[in-house]
């Protein structure tokens, strides 16, 4: 029983990690309808920034978030303004996909140029030590990630539903032309939303960096799971991404322990496919609803 609880606890912690790296991706897709293939590289950039701030200034990795999140906000806003926006009128929307894939490759190579192929270890500041929580032991840093992911979901939902700007963002996502007729500056909302999505990745970076070694290709390591989580939860749904992440985390952990660590991914992707066959729009997806207003 205790082993089972420990495996579940590990799964929840993994789910928290998957959630924190996926929220920004689903936010950007839900609003701008652009899949950011450079998402993993945004995370990589944030982790390197956390590494630099922590090692050069001697700050606690979590303290670096006050620089990393705004820096990523700017990176996201600039990406939207200078890369995506000029392509919005492109006749073929796949152009935007290629643009973000290009950005991803450019960022990986830029990181190789600056940091080389070496691994950068952000000081863990005690976050890698385990704590006893009832019958289970977990890493302190992982617990904070799960808590932050949950708080981020609640905070974003509050912002999107209860504030004027948040409602304007949802309005743009649901009907771009009508949003313009309300007096909403749609291009500005897109820049803002990409910035917010990227800032979420910035927060994730500072939380993840003390636990995982940073390298130029760390983004590709995380990004596939982020895409699975986002599709499973329903593209664009923030609570969906959280629930999807927890499901994938639990599956990963349970399958890894009870079925065999080699088959972990086979089980995760198998269940993922079954859910998508039964509910193609994802768990919390609304996009495929038939009752849409023309």
């Amino acid at each position: 029983m205790e082993t089972f609880l420990q495996v579940v606890a590990n799964g929840l912690m993994l789910g928290g990690l998957f959630a924190i790296i996926s929220i920004g991706l689903t936010l950007i897709f839900g609003i701008i309808k652009v899949v950011n293939f450079a998402h993993g590289e945004f995370l990589m950039a944030g982790m390197f920034l956390t590494y630099l701030i922590t090692t050069q200034l001697g700050l606690h990795p979590y303290a670096s978030v006050v620089v990393v999140a705004p820096a990523l906000f700017v990176l996201g806003a600039v990406t939207q303004k200078l890369l995506i926006q000029p392509l919005l009128s492109a006749r073929d929307e796949h152009v935007q996909i290629f643009a973000t894939v290009g950005l991803s490759t450019a960022m990986i190579n830029l990181a190789l140029l600056i940091f080389g192929a070496d691994i950068a270890n952000t000081p863990s500041s005690g976050l890698r030590s385990s704590i006893q929580l009832g019958p289970v032991r977990i890493l302190e840093g992982q617990l904070y990630i799960l808590i932050c992911a949950a708080l981020l979901v609640v905070g974003l939902e509050f912002f999107l539903r209860r504030t004027q700007t948040g409602r304007a963002i949802r309005a743009v996502a649901q009907n771009r032309a009508a949003a313009q007729l309300m007096g909403i500056n749609v291009n500005w909302i897109y820049v803002l939303s990409f910035g917010i999505g990227a800032a979420c990745v910035g927060l994730a970076s500072s939380l993840v960096a003390p636990l995982y070694p940073t390298s130029s290709t760390i983004g590709t390591y995380f990004v596939l799971t982020a895409f699975v989580v986002v599709v499973l939860g329903g593209l664009g749904s923030i609570p969906g991404a959280f629930v999807g992440a927890i499901i994938i985390g639990l599956l990963d952990s349970l399958a890894g322990f009870y079925i065999g660590s080699d088959l972990r991914e086979a089980v995760v992707f198998g269940v993922f496919l079954v859910i998508l066959i039964l509910k193609p729009s994802g768990l919390f997806g609304t996009r495929l609803k038939l009752s849409h207003i023309s």
Binding site: R167, A168, A171, N175, A178, A179, M182, H292
Partner: peptide
């Protein structure tokens, strides 16, 4: 606009509040 163009996944109240978005 023609064809209503409401925000489908927003409540009626939210739709009306969006109408008052103008400064």
């Amino acid at each position: 606009p023609e064809g209503r163009q409401l925000f489908p996944d927003m409540t009626v109240r939210e739709n009306l509040l969006m109408g008052a978005y103008r400064r």
